[in-house]
Amino acid sequence: MIDLKDVSYSYSGIKALSHIDLHISKGEAVVLMGPNGSGKSTLLKIINGIAVPDSGVYRFNGEEITQKKLQDTKFSKLFHQKIGFVFQNSEVQLFCPDVFDEIAFGPRQMGMSETQVQQRVDDCLELLSIQDLKHRQPYHLSGGEKRKVAIACVLALNPEVLTLDEPMNGLDPRTQRWLVEFLVRLNRAGKTLISSMHNLEMVQEISRRAVLFDENHTIVADCPTRDLLEDMDLLKKVNLVDEYYHKHDGSGHSHFHIHSSPFHED
């Protein structure tokens, strides 16, 4: 579904991604890990077509994504419908006067009737249990509520792939817990998930596969999440953790887990 071959990218001379090869299949859940500034956000931008690789090839559903293709409005609109992006800062995603309009923004553009739009918005509100925010102004919500509204308005487009940039950032533990379980549910419903994350405890609950970046902006590991979390030396080498970091037990399980998650059954 998502296929990157030898992709490099730099911002006005400053390198952000170097020779990235990555393949993600439909229905997979992948977590991107790595220290700050290692290129995770840039990769998400490229996957979403906000940035176009300097060199290398990015294919989505077998079709190469190029600047030229993205300039074709119909192509780019379809592409953006199929892949949703939850920004790191949810504030930047909310630009409508109230939450209802915010979530209805996508469905309305897709030419649905107003009753269909209503239905879809209500479904989304219920899905994220934010019914009571329906008529609030997005700007004045709390951080956690903003994140939920941002996710709701991306989901309203019913994308096939959902990308999330540091979705746990700035959330309280209870909301983090809720979001982990929600993402697992989405993945089980068939959505492809790609998220960048720092929180090592939660990584293995969301996905079985982890991709690790180092400070040279390359991928140094692409393996089952559990194996990666075992490899303390590698995590230290890429400066993701320091020597004081320790797991809560030696068996590879961390404190937080949900036994209902299918990922623990293997």
Binding site: H80, F95, F105, G106, Q109, M110
Partner: peptide, 9 residues
């Protein structure tokens, strides 16, 4: 950017 990504129609 976010306006652009969500402008699907």
């Amino acid at each position: 950017y976010s306006l652009k990504l969500r402008s699907v129609g």
